[in-house]
Design a protein around this nucleic acid. Structure first.
Length: 759
RNA sequence: GACUGCUUAGCUCAGUUGGUUAGAGCGCUUCGCUUACAUCGAAGAGGUCAUAGGUUCGAAUCCUAUAGCAGUCACCA
């Protein structure tokens, strides 16, 4: 390096600034790309290239974003928090791995894809399931690359060489193994129950996926012979099998155990009256019509009173949402239209006593398309959950799992206690096909739909279909099949013989996601599982606590005998600067990439994280991004000033200025409190402390004191390098760039800040 | 109906196991382009910490009740 000391002060400053290429404003666009490249060439985030190997591990498995989704601000939030933890632990010297991935998000993705098809005037029913699967695969592949490159832009220090996709061959193979293991331990069964079915999305959902919404609806008081029934769903009457009253209800005592003749629009029915104390005498008229296939309570009622009810239950509404053959002359109408027509006809026949238009009730809606959920009977695979939840509850009680996030630990516990068996069958193509095979000779009654060689659709019992086409042809054009309850099946990854046909249902996306920490580590480097499992932290939004975190705990424990992680950090929802939920219709959505472009990734990360609390929502807007951007500029300029004013000769001399001792003590204290705060998962607080100490202590006080010669230059430099390290997990780009400049000036030694030691 | 949170400055939020004068950002007022930074600096106004009790030498912090807001669950024929 050139010796500048013969030059005048001013000339020296100009030259050194030119030499270091330091503008008075921090240019995030230029530096972020440069630093990303630097880390990439060094493979800085691959633990196999690190000196930390053999030290105690620190692992975070990234919640795999929906491969089909562009990055939104929620992703930016989890990337920020996880990256802070990961960078901190890497600097501490831990054997650190942050493993990225992408999720196929079964229903969500197929829904988006079907919308695309609809625009072209087509639907999923135009394709056999394999072609459809392949088409979605190609579609997702493109989108996924975009999403992953966006994660890089935010500075995520993940090891891309260990990336996993939930539909990757290796992952699928392990998920199938888990299913076999569950089966061999007697935890899988098939049952015909009412499921939450969305006739629009064409699939069943688990109870957790049903949205409940308070709605104003109409309560019809309909005459059933001498009785009157209050119902919101008159159109299910074609499938009524009984009437129910409370056993102590004096009004109806004389009808109990009698069979009533009930007048309908087209024909008459005879329905038995049965007493059961599930009936609330105060609601409506105190008389309930029982429709087992369209209401959960009624289904349970039917199970209890099978002997008294002679009629076999039927469906009035089909899986496509239209009225079935049972529906007399309403057959083929959409359920909602059938209701209108039926009510009109009932009125004409004077069978409606009154109508309450202002009835408030809670409707089950599809979380995906917001259309009403139809309870329908379907034969599905279930997982027994009790044996899975018990060890988790025990661990929670013992404090082996710590949930960081405003009372969500109690919610988790509550859920584990009330959880019902898990319906894992989904009627979508985009997912892992259930590895269950039926022998077509032993199960001739399997309902099958397929596209024949000419592209024409055939539907019916498989034994009949086999008379026209070979099993091979049926398999090729297969769309769906539905095996009756009790059908014999074999579990196998490949066809167990030439008489077999595979189940068309796929696993619930969460079934594979629940195994994510295990399958990602089992399918990477040979020793990864032993080296990194169990992981230390699971970080995600509190909105998927039950869907994902709870099930990961259950399944991780089941597969490996060890809980997959011991800390759960839950971040909140990001809201706009007024505290409102972000939505496209309100036009208040923060686009993380545009924000990064404008203010820098460092600023976005800092704005999201500073003063955030685990489990609580965070409100973030333009003023916050601006303030955080100003911080990055402040860091830049503080370093710029120190580099400019530094007299290198004086660095070597021992000085003892007035403020030196106080400075050193306070700096030490800052290091201690930041370290403690991160260890305690108080990340928002750590960020705030750093902001204040750096700006209002280091810049406002210390730099000014140094100007007045009350503080040694060597200590000021030490303060700068210390703050760069402390700030690095939060604002990695600007701090690394400054480190590189300091290195050029021979003021620091470590090759990168990212791999340097925590102070 | 049950559970879980939240209520602190005009706005959005912190407040690190109870401890001097309760903090930040934005906004506001006044002044300043002083050779790191105007994406800045200096000074300032602004809070009965939802309400009422209690525990304590001491409470924004712990306990009880109430109110408002939010989320989740259950019932709903």
């Amino acid at each position: 390096m050139v010796d500048f000391f013969f030059l005048t002060n001013q000339a020296w400053r100009v030259i050194i600034l030119l030499h270091m290429n330091m503008d008075s404003r921090y240019d995030h666009l230029k530096n972020e790309e440069e630093m990303t490249k630097l880390w990439e060439t060094l493979e800085a985030f691959n633990p196999d290239k690190s000196d930390n190997r053999g030290n105690k591990p620190f692992t975070i498995i990234m919640p795999p974003p929906n491969a089909n989704d562009p990055l939104h601000v929620g992703h930016a939030m989890f990337i920020s928090i996880e990256d802070i933890l990961v960078r901190y632990h890497r600097m501490l010297g831990d054997d650190t791995l942050w493993l990225p991935g992408a999720d196929h998000a079964g229903i969500e993705t197929q829904y988006v894809y079907e919308k695309k098809l609809k625009k072209k005037g087509r639907s999923r029913f135009d394709f056999d399931r394999e072609t459809l699967y392949q088409n979605i695969w190609n579609y997702v592949q493109e989108k996924s690359d975009v999403a992953m490159s966006q994660i890089k832009k935010l500075g995520a220090s993940v090891d891309w060489s260990r990336f996993k996709f939930t539909l990757g061959e290796d992952v699928v193979d392990d998920v199938l193994n888990t299913f076999s293991k569950l089966d061999s331990e007697g935890l899988v069964y098939r049952a015909n129950r009412l499921v939450n079915y969305c006739t629009n999305c064409g699939t069943a959902f688990s109870n957790l996926e049903v949205l409940h919404q308070e709605q104003k609806s109409t309560l019809y008081y309909i005459k059933y012979g001498p009785l009157v029934v209050a119902t919101t769903r008159p159109e299910t009457r074609f499938a009524d099998v009984a009437l129910a009253v409370h056993p102590k209800d004096k009004r109806y005592k004389k009808y109990v155990d009698k069979t009533l003749q009930v007048e309908g629009v087209v024909k008459n029915y005879s329905l038995p009256v049965i007493a059961d104390d599930f009936v609330d005498p105060k609601f409506g008229t105190g008389v309930v019509k029982i429709t087992p296939y369209h209401d959960h309570n009624d289904f349970d009622f039917w199970q209890r009173h099978k002997d008294e009810i002679k009629t076999k239950p039927t469906k009035a509404i089909n899986y496509d949402g239209f009225i079935t053959e049972a529906g007399e002359n309403y057959k083929g109408l959409k359920a909602s239209q059938a209701r209108k027509k039926l009510v009109k006809d009932l009125k004409k026949a004077d069978l409606i006593e009154k109508v309450d238009l202002n009835y408030q009730n809670n409707m089950g809606l599809c979380y995906r398309c917001k259309k009403p959920i139809e309870p329908l009977p379907l034969t599905q695979f279930y997982v027994k959950v009790k044996p899975l939840t018990e060890p988790v509850l025990e661990a929670l009680d013992k404090g082996e799992i710590v949930v960081h996030g405003a009372g969500h630990d109690k919610i988790l516990k509550h859920w584990l206690e009330i959880l019902e068996d898990w319906n894992i069958s989904r009627q979508v193509v985009w997912g892992i096909r259930i590895p269950v095979w039926y022998n077509v000779e032993k199960c001739p009654d399997i309902q099958t739909t397929y596209l024949g060689k000419n592209g024409k659709k055939h539907s019916g019992k498989i034994s009949k279909l086999l008379k026209n086409d070979s099993l091979e042809t049926i398999k090729q054009g297969l769309q769906t099949l539905s095996a009756p309850l009790g059908s014999e099946y074999k579990i196998s990854k490949v066809s167990p013989g030439n008489k077999y046909i595979q189940e068309t249902d796929t696993f619930d996306t969460w079934f594979s996601s629940s195994q994510w920490p295990v399958v990602t580590l089992k399918n990477n480097q040979p020793d990864d599982f032993d080296r990194f499992y169990p992981t230390q932290v699971m970080e995600t939004g509190y909105d998927i606590l039950m869907f994902w975190v709870m099930r990961m705990l259950m399944m991780g424990e089941f597969i490996t005998g060890k809980l997959p992680f011991n800390n759960v950090y839950l971040h909140g929802l990001i809201r706009d600067d007024k505290g409102e939920k972000m939505s496209k219709s309100k036009n208040n959505v923060t686009n993380p990439l545009q924000t990064t472009e404008k203010y820098g990734a460092d600023a976005l990360r800092m704005a999201l994280v500073i003063r955030s609390s685990a489990g609580l929502d965070k409100s973030v807007g333009k003023p916050d991004f601006k303030a955080a951007r100003n911080l990055t500029n402040k860091i830049w300029n503080a370093a710029r000033y120190i580099l400019m004013s530094l007299d290198k000769k004086s660095l070597k001399e021992k000085t003892d200025k007035k403020y030196d001792q106080v400075f050193e003590e306070h700096l030490k204290q800052i290091i201690e409190s930041i370290t403690k705060q991160i260890n305690d998962f108080k990340i928002g607080l750590a960020a705030e402390t750093l902001y204040n100490e750096f700006w209002h202590w280091f810049c406002d006080e210390c730099i000014e004191k140094c100007k007045k010669e009350d503080l040694s230059q060597s200590l000021l430099l030490k303060g700068l390098t210390t703050f760069l390290k402390l700030l690095h997990p939060f604002t990695p780009f600007v701090t690394e760039k400054l480190w590189q400049i300091l290195k050029q000036e021979n003021l620091v030694e470590d090759q990168t800040l990212a791999l340097s030691n925590w102070p």
